[in-house]
C-alpha cells in the first residue's frame, strides 16, 4: 500500500487468528492484509472485539497467528521479539512500585544486559525525551497518571527499538492530559523517527496522530478501511478544527458505521 525504499517494516498477508474458546471458535482476525513502512504512524481504530489489540499482539509475538503470514523487520514476530525489535506500551503504565522512575526505565536495559554506564545515559536521555527530567528518583505513586504513562513510554524507548507498539496508551487518562500527551507523542515521533502502531478508541486521537488510519470492525475482526492522512506532519492541536481534519474524522466514522451495518 505504501511504497518505501527498504520495503515494508511490517507486512501482514492473509492474517487469520482463531481463538478456541468454551463457546466455540472466535474469529479474532480474518484476512488482514497490511504493509507498514518505516517511519509511519499507523492508528488502529474500531469497536471492542475488532481485533485491533490482537493484531498488535500478533505483531509483538505475544499471540501466534493461525493462518497467513506476518513479518516484522523481515523476521517472524517471535524472532523480532527475541531480537528486541519493538517497544510495547500497554494501556496501564504498569510501573513497578518498588522501583523509582529511573529504575523502571532501567528494567529492560538490565534484562537486555546494557552496561551500567550505558544504562545511565539511556535513562537520562529517554526521561528527557518524555519530558520527565528530574523525576528519576521519584517513585511511581508520587507521579500523576499521565506522568506514569509517559514514564512507561520512556521505558519502551530506552533500548532504542525502531518500532513502538502502543495499545491504547492514553485510554485511561482524561481528555486534557490526553491532548497534551498526544502533542508530546507527535514531537517524540518527529524526533526519533520511529515506526509507531497505535491502537485507540478515539477518532480525534487517531486522526490527529496518524499518517495512516486503519479502521477495523468485529466478528470477524477485519480491516474495513485504510485512510491516508493528508495532514502535514507538523500538527498543532488546533488543526482539529480544520476542514481537512473534520473530513478525515467523518470518513473514519463512516467506516466504523459501515462495519456495524454488516452485522
Amino acid at each position: 500500500m505504501t511504497d518505501s525504499v527498504g520495503g515494508p517494516i511490517i507486512a501482514a498477508q492473509g492474517l487469520e487468528l482463531v481463538f478456541q474458546t468454551g463457546d466455540g471458535p472466535v474469529h479474532a482476525l480474518k484476512d488482514v492484509n497490511l504493509n507498514i513502512a518505516k517511519g509511519e504512524f499507523v492508528s488502529f481504530i474500531g469497536p471492542s472485539g475488532c481485533g485491533k489489540t490482537t493484531f498488535l499482539r500478533v505483531v509483538a509475538g505475544l499471540e501466534t497467528a493461525t493462518g497467513g503470514t506476518v513479518s516484522v523487520n523481515g523476521m517472524t514476530p517471535d524472532q523480532a521479539r527475541q531480537a528486541r525489535a519493538y517497544g510495547y506500551v500497554f494501556q496501564a503504565a504498569g510501573l513497578y512500585p518498588w522501583r523509582t522512575i529511573g529504575g523502571n526505565i532501567r528494567l529492560p536495559l538490565e534484562i537486555m544486559g546494557f552496561s551500567k554506564s550505558d544504562q545511565e545515559t539511556r535513562v537520562k536521555r529517554t526521561l528527557d525525551l518524555v519530558e520527565l527530567s528530574g523525576f528519576e528518583k521519584k517513585y511511581p505513586w508520587q507521579l500523576s497518571g499521565g506522568m506514569q504513562q509517559r514514564a512507561s513510554i520512556a521505558r519502551a524507548l530506552a533500548f532504542d527499538a525502531d518500532i513502538l507498539l502502543m495499545d491504547e496508551p492514553f485510554g485511561a487518562l482524561d481528555e486534557i492530559v490526553r491532548d497534551r500527551l498526544n502533542e508530546e507523542l507527535l514531537r517524540l515521533w518527529a524526533r526519533t523517527e520511529k515506526t509507531i502502531l497505535f491502537v485507540t478508541h478515539s477518532i480525534p486521537e487517531a486522526v490527529y496522530l496518524s499518517s495512516r488510519i486503519v479502521v477495523m470492525s468485529p466478528r470477524p475482526g477485519r480491516i474495513t478501511d485504510v485512510i491516508e492522512s493528508p495532514l502535514p506532519r507538523d500538527r498543532p492541536l488546533d488543526i482539529r478544527d480544520s476542514a481537512e481534519f473534520i473530513a478525515i474524522a467523518h470518513r473514519v466514522r463512516q467506516g466504523l458505521r459501515a462495519g456495524h451495518l454488516d452485522e
Binding site: 509483538a60 509475538g61 505475544l62 521479539r81 527475541q82 528486541r84 519493538y86 517497544g87 510495547y88 500497554f90 496501564a92 504498569g94 528494567l107 529492560p108 534484562i111 537486555m112
Partner: peptide, 16 residues
Amino acid sequence: QMQLDLLQTYNASKSQ
C-alpha cells in the same frame, strides 16, 4: 498478565 507480557516483550528469561 500485562506484567508478564511486558517481560515477554523484553524477551526476559524465566529467572529474570
